[in-house]
Amino acid sequence: MPLFMDIHIVEDDAFNVIAAREAHHDDLAVQDRYGVRNIKYFLNLPEKKVFCLMEAADKKACVDMHLSAHGIGPCNVIEVSDEIDFRAFLGQGTKNQDDLALTLNGEIDTGYRTLMMVALVDFTGKNGTYFDEVRKLIRQYQGNNINQPNDYIVASFVHASDAIACCLTVSRLLKNVPMNIDYTMAVVTGKPVDETGSDFFGEAKKRLQMLCRLGGNRTVHIDKDTEALLQTNFNKSDTDKGIVKLVSDGDFVLFETLWKTLNHEISNPDFKIDDLNNLLGLSKAQAYRKIKALTGMSPNELIREMRLRKSLEFLNQKEKTVAEIAYELGFNSPTYFTRVFRKRYEMLPTTFAKLSS
């Protein structure tokens, strides 16, 4: 049967481990009636959230079971794509006799994970070497590598401290290789099921992608939720201070607006800075200041960088000509695109396309 996971938000201030266990026993008492098998539940007491992992025929069976047991259904239910996907994000783990999820260290598993993403482009044509090195460091810091269909590396960590330590070590590794390697990195903490949506770790993955797509080259973005999980203040070494940026919830609002706007307008050659400022509802000075602080780039530089990064994906896919890519990404001519590409990456677009052949 398919795997499902739900989220419950508890409003009772007295909610504790015992109350969670009793609620789970109520689920077990009626599960057979709805063809559901409860596997285990994850408990985050500080956030007053519970995540139940179940096998069932469909979402409705999961909701009906909870309604029967408690008179109230979950806030949201999602289908987990498969058990491999589940384990990649949440790890092997274990559970106690009452089905409470535990980490491999025997701690109560909150279900929350700190995710790290590395967007890495190697212009030497030796992508595999550095990809392997990064994945090796992820395993060294107790992280799980999550398979991706593109050039992004994504990993999941139980502890935020491991993710931060791994992230900074990877950054130092890549910093010491030739400048013909581009990378952006992001670290975000999130929950397996959001109050809305249908994707496993959907909000966290969306934030990771935005930060890696919009972040400045050789920059690490870390969200405030991850920083808050660290037991001591986040102290960056002198070598890290210039590359690490902390991202607040307010910053994410602007990031999301930028992300949606630039994705929509990326193919429009007439899209100008004034258009972006108007869509953001900011003056020219405000937009420049905020975008520069978030991304390390001016608005003009950000628009150009977004187009160039997208061109790398198209060139890797080898399904479009250089001219088609140029026009699709809003460049006025293939000649101008080639000139801008060469200035940014110190090689021709056709040369880059051959690197991944």
Rank of each mutant, 00 (worst) to 15 (best):
N144Q: 10
L254I: 14
F89R: 08
E319G: 05
E195M: 12
R309C: 04
D6T: 14
L100C: 08
V10Q: 03
S333R: 05
K49C: 06
F15V: 11
F86T: 11
P149S: 14
E133M: 15
Q92L: 13
A186G: 06
G71V: 03
L28H: 02
A14R: 15
L214I: 01
F271Q: 09
E133K: 13
S298V: 03
M117E: 11
M54S: 07
S333Y: 06
F252S: 01
H24L: 08
F131Q: 11
K40P: 09
L355A: 03
D82Y: 05
D27I: 04
G35T: 00
F89M: 07
A165Q: 15
L120W: 09
M5L: 07
M54D: 04
A287Q: 01
E346I: 10
E47Y: 07
A155W: 02
I7K: 06
L137V: 07
V247A: 01
L168S: 07
P349M: 10
E79M: 11
W259D: 01
R113P: 02
D85F: 10
K284F: 13
D240V: 10
L355D: 10
I164Q: 10
N176I: 02
R37H: 05
P269T: 08
Q317I: 09
N147M: 15
E313W: 09
D64V: 04
H24V: 12
L308Q: 07
F42D: 06
A101N: 03
S237F: 06
N268Y: 14
D274Q: 10
I108R: 00
H24C: 11
R342C: 02
Q286D: 12
E265G: 01
G73I: 07
L214S: 02
E203H: 09
H70D: 14
P299Q: 00
E55V: 04
L348D: 03
S311E: 00
G111K: 00
Y327V: 03
E203T: 15
E55Y: 12
D162Y: 11
R87S: 09
E47Q: 12
M347C: 09
I181M: 07
R21Q: 11
R87I: 14
K236Y: 13
T189L: 06
Y152T: 00
F200N: 08
K310W: 05
F255M: 02
R33V: 03
F123C: 04
V77P: 06
S267N: 12
K284H: 14
V10F: 05
I164P: 10
R344H: 04
H221R: 04
F234Q: 00
K290R: 15
D240R: 03
A61Y: 02
S248P: 13
K260P: 08
A293I: 01
Q148R: 13
A285P: 08
M179A: 12
D240M: 08
E301T: 08
D6C: 15
D240H: 07
G143D: 04
S283L: 03
D27P: 01
Q97W: 10
V17F: 15
K48N: 12
D132E: 14
D249L: 10
I266W: 10
L214P: 07
K40I: 13
D132P: 03
N235G: 12
D238E: 15
F201H: 08
F255P: 00
R113V: 01
